[in-house]
Computed example of a mutant assay.
Amino acid sequence: MQKYADYIKQIEIDALWSGRKHIIWDLDRQVNILSGVNGVGKSTILNKVVKGLSSGGDFPSHLLKGVHLKVEPEDARLIRFDIIRSFDRPIINSEAVTKMGLTLATEMDWQIFLLQRKYLDYQVNIGNRIIATLQSGEPDAAEKAQALSQPKKDFQDIMDSLFAETGKKIIRTENEIKFTQIGETLLPYQLSSGEKQILVILLTVLVEDQKNYVLFMDEPEVSLHVEWQKQLIDLILRLNPNVQIILTTHSPAVIMNGWMDKVTEVSDITVS
């Protein structure tokens, strides 16, 4: 069985921008923030790495020419990863979505639709593990079962806290994500762009099921309230302490809660 990497130790990119630049970026186990002015290549670097990874995370045979990854452990050949981009554009192939009987307007709606499916699978998986734990007969079975259910509760509590100002709350008796507001039921597609964005990020992290994951995010602060930007990294790590975050940003707010030393300027990892 092929081994999954815990995290990426180094990203190296040869001959970026028509051979004029060479990138070597040594990464932190948990948080990595790439900064720089517009047009300096933050998104290009991120996209180059993500584009070379296969959907299953197989990287030695799929990475684009000129992209090299060092991982831990060194003999791992697979990476679990997710990519979050922030632009809530209209769905390109809206006709195909309509044929599926869906009324989704934007790409973020489509992401939420896919995440709802993963969320259902996640709940089934956790439920089966809770049942097995309770049936194990171990003296601490109840405590272990509660620990298994804690991340989902944390996610629900976080969403309620973030949305408290507008009076929205997650309906905890529903299997899919739905909200209530002043007695009305809201589907996630009815949320604002910023609310959809934070939901997509945190739900993506939840369904990672606390496994070792690499979470790529390209300017996740777009549409987010500044207070949400400040909390973003801490909330992600609360839901999955085993995640490695690799993100680009223009926002000072994202690094305000003690993440200044995790910022790397593109110029600092570029060799002419």
Rank of each mutant, 00 (worst) to 15 (best):
P220V: 02
G194R: 08
N257S: 13
P252I: 10
H250S: 08
T173I: 09
N175I: 10
N242K: 09
N175E: 13
T173L: 07
I245W: 02
G183L: 03
W259E: 04
R172A: 11
K196N: 03
S161Q: 13
P220F: 01
L187H: 11
G258W: 04
V207M: 06
D234G: 08
L202D: 01
A164I: 12
L203Y: 01
K178H: 10
I182K: 14
R172P: 07
I236L: 06
E176Y: 12
K169D: 11
Q197V: 08
P188N: 02
F216D: 02
L215F: 11
N257V: 06
G183M: 02
L232V: 10
D209P: 02
I198Y: 03
N240L: 06
S192L: 05
K230G: 07
G194Y: 06
T166M: 11
T249A: 05
F179S: 07
P188H: 00
D209N: 15
F179Q: 04
K178D: 08
R172T: 15
D209A: 12
E208D: 15
I201D: 00
S161T: 15
L187E: 12
E184P: 05
E184F: 12
E227K: 15
E195P: 07
Q181I: 11
I255Y: 04
Y213G: 01
L247G: 00
I177Y: 01
P188L: 00
I170V: 15
H225C: 08
K211F: 09
L203S: 11
Y189D: 07
E227N: 15
I198M: 10
Y213T: 15
D234H: 04
E195C: 09
V243L: 06
R172K: 13
P220C: 02
K211W: 06
L247M: 15
T185F: 09
E184Y: 12
I198W: 03
F179C: 07
L215T: 09
F179R: 00
Q210P: 00
G167P: 13
L206W: 01
K196A: 00
I171L: 12
V205L: 03
Y189P: 01
I170G: 03
K168G: 11
K169S: 14
V200N: 08
Q210R: 15
S161N: 13
T249V: 04
I171D: 12
I177T: 11
M256I: 10
I170P: 04
E221K: 00
L224P: 01
I236T: 06
T185V: 15
P188K: 00
L237M: 14
H250C: 08
T173S: 15
V207N: 02
E219I: 01
D209Y: 04
I198F: 04
L203E: 14
I255W: 04
F179V: 10
Q244D: 07
D160G: 07
R172I: 10
S223Y: 14
L237A: 03
E221L: 01
I255P: 00
I236Y: 00
Y213L: 13
F163M: 14
L202G: 04
T180N: 12
G258E: 03
V226I: 14
V200T: 13
K196T: 03
L237Q: 12
Q229D: 05
